[in-house]
Design a protein around this nucleic acid. Sequence first.
DNA 1: AAATTATTTCAATTCAAGTTGATGCAAGTT
DNA 2: AACTTGCATCAACTTGAATTGAAATAATTT
Lengths: 107, 107
Amino acid sequence: MQVQTNYDLTTILAGFRSLSDPIRLSVVELLQAQELCVCDLCEKLDISQSKLSFHLKILKEAGLIRPRQAGRWIYYSLNLPQFVVLEQYLSEYRRFSPVLPARVCKD
Amino acid sequence: MQVQTNYDLTTILAGFRSLSDPIRLSVVELLQAQELCVCDLCEKLDISQSKLSFHLKILKEAGLIRPRQAGRWIYYSLNLPQFVVLEQYLSEYRRFSPVLPARVCKD
DNA sequence: AAATTATTTCAATTCAAGTTGATGCAAGTT
DNA sequence: AACTTGCATCAACTTGAATTGAAATAATTT
C-alpha cells in the first residue's frame, strides 16, 4: 500500500509477467549484449519465427524492448529505463522494510 | 547468457511469475508494511481463503514470503533476501549494458 | 473427546497463455 | 510488375494457471 502510489501497477505487473517466461528471459539476456534482429534471435534461440514474434510482442508491450526498423530488418534492443523501473520497484521493499512487531491476531 | 551464470534462472523465473499477478502483488505490498496472518490478508483483500492460500503457496515456493506458525495462526512475512536477488538480477542489465546514445524519435 | 477455528489441499471447472502452421504485409530485389 | 525476404498476425489447438466449493488437517478450546 505504502510502497508506490507513484508507479503504474499495471506496468509493473506486465513487466514481471514478461520476465516470467524462459524464452522471454533468454531474449532479454541476448539483447543485453547487443541489439539483434528477429532472424538473429530466431536462430540463436532455435525457435520458430512466429513463436518468437509472439514473445517479442509481449516484451515490447511491457516496454522492456523496442524495435528499430532498418530496411526490412527489425532490430530489437533493451529499453533500460523500464528495467530500472522494475528494479526500483523491488528496491522499495528493501528500503522501507519494517522492523515492526507482528500484529497479534485476536478476536 | 552473459548476465548471470551465478543465479539460478529457475528461481528468477519463479520470482517474476509470482509477482506478475495482481493478487500476489497486493499480498507482498501488504506484507511490506507488516507481518500478517492469513485471515488478515483474507479480510484486507476480500477474497476467499482457498484462493488466497493458492497464491500464498506460489509466493512461498518462489521464496518471496515465509510462514511462521503461532498457535493456529500462520503469519506470513516477506523474505527480503529473495527480493534482493531479483533486484540484483535486474540491476545487471543496467550495469553491463553497452552505453547506447539516446535515440531521438524523428516522426 | 468433541467442537471450534485457521489454514491447506483436492477435484472440477473456467479462463488465460503458449504453440503451430498458414496467411498477410511491407521493404528490397530482379 | 513479379518475386523474395523478414517479420507480424490470425485462427485452431494445446497447455498451464486461476477460481470455486467441499473436504482434510492441525492446533485450541470446552
